[in-house]
């Protein structure tokens, strides 16, 4: 008998609607189910408007979801009060996209790193200071950086501070919201290696949110591709990249820029641009853009269908 991996973060039917005047609703997230297992990296890939950032915020209740539930380490967070949520953030942490905007400009690095130690772990100052120095070294900074303000650090150093802050509370789940999107490529590689090393050392589960397919391929064990608030394809990273099934995934992969000479790819083009997420019809979201569209696509929204080996796709046409 093979033991099922322990699921540390599970969402079921997570939905977020925003009223936009009258009875109209903007569907930011519609019924998203994911499982994140202990110690693994699950990447959420999508373009702007796909709902991947809304998903992260709903999963943490930084934004209140409209429907659905989130289990974190087996516990539902749906009915948690303010105290319960504050406690929850000791188990799940987040690294933000723009380290410049996510660090309080008036706090020194010391204050930033001490805060979770004080609030989550209730450490006295001397212990906090000792731990802060350890954290600095863990993320590749030096104790001297503790006295700096964010504006005195480079982009990469700031992101390291963001990672130190997230790890200070000793979570077992870390949500990484585009952690390298605002960094130069030469810094990006170092940051990804740091994240990988920390994951192995601390047995962290990563929910890795990104639009950068190259980074996702480098980091993730499994991938979920999002489009207009829903998952259209998910599976193991090598399967999805080697054998993309959904037309959207194919278009996305074939459009990704490659820093290599002489790569000529068959480009799958989608017509037009992402349609409005306001009151979408009950149909496949790719209707109108998809080169493989069938009449049946417009009658209902296809669910995720298992294509074998944990690879699932929300498109009956490609499986037919």
């Amino acid at each position: 008998m093979r033991a099922e991996p322990y699921v540390v973060l599970r969402t079921s039917g997570l939905t977020k609607l925003y009223p936009v005047g009258g009875s109209r609703r903007l569907v930011a997230l519609s019924g998203v189910d994911i499982d994140l297992a202990e110690g693994e990296t699950l990447a959420l890939v999508g373009e702007s408007g796909s709902g991947k950032s809304t998903f992260a915020r709903c999963a943490l209740r930084l934004v209140e979801p409209s429907d659905g539930d989130v289990l974190i380490n087996g516990r539902s967070i749906r009915s948690l009060g303010a105290l319960g949520l504050a406690e929850l953030y000791g188990e799940v942490q987040m690294v933000f996209q723009d380290p410049n905007a996510s660090l309080n400009p008036r706090m020194t690095v010391r204050q930033v790193v001490h805060e979770p130690l004080r609030l989550h772990l209730r450490m006295p100052f001397a212990k906090r200071e000792k731990r802060a120095i350890e954290l600095m070294e863990m993320v590749g900074l030096t104790p001297a950086h503790l006295d700096r303000y964010p504006h005195e650090l480079s982009g990469g150093q700031r992101q390291r501070v963001g990672i130190a802050r997230a790890l200070a509370a000793e979570p077992n789940i870390v949500i990484l919201d585009e952690p390298t999107a605002s960094l130069d490529v030469s810094v990006r590689g170092q940051m990804l290696e740091l994240l990988k090393r920390l994951q192995a050392e601390l047995k962290l589960a990563y929910l890795f949110i990104s639009h950068d397919l190259q980074v996702v391929r480098h980091m993730a064990d499994r991938v979920a591709v999002m489009y207009l608030g829903g998952i259209v394809e998910s599976g193991r990273t090598e399967d999805v990249f080697a054998r993309p099934l959904h037309p959207y995934t194919r278009a996305l992969l074939s459009a990704a820029p490659v820093a290599r000479w002489g790569v000529k790819r068959q480009r799958l083009r989608l017509a037009g641009e992402i349609p409005s997420p306001i009151d979408p019809p009950d149909a496949c979201r790719l209707v109108g853009r998809c080169p493989m569209q069938q009449p049946a696509c417009t009658t209902r929204r296809p669910p995720l269908i298992d294509a074998g080996g944990g690879h699932a796709v929300a498109c009956p046409v490609v499986l037919a």
Binding site: L62, H120, A169
Partner: peptide, 9 residues
């Protein structure tokens, strides 16, 4: 940074 402040407790 306001979200981050909530996350650190």
């Amino acid at each position: 940074y306001a979200e981050a402040a909530r996350m650190v407790g």
